[in-house]
Design a protein around this nucleic acid. Structure first.
Lengths: 221, 221
DNA sequence: GTTTGTCTGTGACCGGGTCGCATTTCCGCA
DNA sequence: TGCGGAAATGCGACCCGGTCACAGACAAAC
C-alpha cells in the first residue's frame, strides 16, 4: 500500500480539511492504475467518486443509445473532476462516460465519503460546485462549436489546437481518432481532410496528418 | 421606491447574510419591470447581475453569429439565476441571451455587488456555484436531446410536456414559437406537425395545435 | 369590400451523418 | 519472403433536418 500523502495534498480542498477529515479522506482514497483504452466510468460501471489525475489523460464524453459519442472535455495530470461522483450529487443528474486515453494513475475518493465530506465541510461543497461550474463553462463552449460551427471550421480549429498542444505539425492520429475528438464520423473527417489536402492545407499518410499551410487553415476560422 | 424586503427575503442565501451584508444587498438591488418581448440580457446589453424572478417568465438561449437560437431553459416565478452575472464570475466565460416571454418583475442584485458578496461570504459563493451546477445539469439534458434525439421524438416530447404544464390539449402557439422552444426551424416544425396530423396524432388550426392521440405521441418516445 | 401583417404550405437545395462495401497498408509469422 | 488478417482509408448512395425563396390563407382594421 503506497503512501498517498503527496497526492492527497494536491487536492484543491485539502488545506480546508480538519485533521479528522484528512484522516477520513485518507481512509477512503485509493490510487488505482488504469491502462489506456479502459472505461473507468460509465453506464456499465459502478459510481467512481471524486477523482484527481496523477498521470495520464482521460476523455469525458456523452454516449447515446445508438452508440454515438460527443466529447465534452479531457482531463490530464493535475486535473480533478466530480462528474465521476454524479451518482451521489443530487444537483447533477445526467450521465457521462470516461475513457482512458493514456495510461493513468488516478487518485480516487470514494463516492459516499466524498458526499459525506461535502455535506459537512462547506469548503468542499463549494469546491464541488465550483469545479462543476468550470466544466460547465468549458462544455458550453464545445456545445456552441458543435451547434453553430460548420464542420470545416471545427476540424481546422482542432488540427491547429492539437498541433500547438503537441508542438508538431505531424499529427499521429487516425481519421477515427480525430472523428472522436471533434464528435463526428470517420467518413466525414476523411471527406474534409481530402478537401483540405486538395487545397494544399494538409498532407496525409496512413495514421498521420501533416499540417502544410497553417495560415490557410487559420483563415477558415 | 417600493420596499424590496419581501422579495429580498426570498433570496436563497438571504438567511446566510449578516446585517451589514443585508443592508449592502438592499442598497444594490432593484425591481425593474420588463415587458414581454424585451431582451434583458445579451451581447448588446450591459451586465445585469444576479436575478430573482418575482413574476413572469424568461427564456434563456444561445445565439449564434448567424442568428440561430438554441433554447437552454426557462425561468419562472421563484427562480433565480446567476448566468446574467457571468461577466463578473471568472469561472463562467460563455455568453447567453435572456428574453422575456411573459411580462416580468425581476429582483436584480447589481453585478459588482453580487461579486463582492460572493467574495466575502462563502455561503453566497456556494449558492452561486450550486445554482450554476443545477442549470448545468438541466442544460446537459437539453443538449442530449438535441444531439441524439430524432426530431419527431423531440417535438412529440415537447407537445406532451407543454400540454401537461398548461393542463390543456389545445396549445395556443404558432409554429414559429414551437420551433423556438425546440431549437429548430419553423418549416421543420410545420413538416413534422403535418406528418403528425396525417397520422391522426394532432389537429391544427391557425395559431394552435390540438393533441388528439396522446398515447400515440407517447409511443414515439 | 380592401389592405396589411401574421401565419402556414411547399419544393429545391445543402451539409453532414449513416451504411455498405471495396481497397490499401501494415505487420506478424510461417 | 511471401501470405493472411486486421487496421485504416476511399467512396457512392441515401436520409434527416436546416435553409431559402416563394406562394397562398387567414385575421383584424379600416
Amino acid at each position: 500500500m503506497p503512501d498517498l500523502s503527496p497526492y492527497l495534498e494536491k487536492l484543491p480542498y485539502w488545506k480546508d480539511l480538519s485533521a479528522d477529515e484528512r484522516a477520513f479522506v485518507r481512509e477512503n482514497a485509493a490510487l488505482p492504475f488504469y491502462p489506456a483504452g479502459s472505461v473507468i466510468y460509465g453506464s456499465s460501471t459502478a459510481c467512481l467518486g471524486m477523482i484527481y489525475v496523477v498521470r495520464g489523460s482521460i476523455r469525458v464524453f456523452f454516449l447515446s443509445d445508438e452508440g454515438r459519442e460527443v466529447t465534452l472535455f479531457r482531463l490530464s495530470a493535475g486535473d480533478s473532476c466530480v462528474l465521476s461522483a454524479a451518482c451521489v450529487i443530487e444537483e447533477i443528474d445526467f450521465d457521462t462516460q470516461m475513457a482512458v486515453e493514456e495510461d493513468c494513475d488516478v487518485l480516487v475518493v470514494r463516492p459516499n465519503a466524498f458526499a459525506a465530506l461535502a455535506e459537512r465541510n462547506i469548503h468542499v461543497r463549494c469546491y464541488l460546485f465550483e469545479t462543476a461550474t468550470e466544466r460547465f463553462s468549458a462544455v458550453m463552449w464545445v456545445m456552441q462549436q458543435i451547434l453553430f460551427s460548420r464542420f470545416d471550421r471545427r476540424l481546422a480549429s482542432f488540427l491547429l489546437r492539437e498541433s500547438a498542444r503537441l508542438e508538431t505539425d505531424e499529427l499521429r492520429m487516425t481519421h477515427e481518432q480525430i472523428a472522436q475528438q471533434v464528435s463526428s464520423a470517420r467518413e466525414v473527417v476523411a471527406r474534409m481532410l481530402k478537401r483540405f489536402a486538395a487545397e494544399g492545407l494538409v498532407s496525409m499518410s496512413r495514421g498521420q496528418v501533416k499540417i502544410v499551410d497553417r495560415a490557410g487553415l487559420r483563415k477558415l476560422l
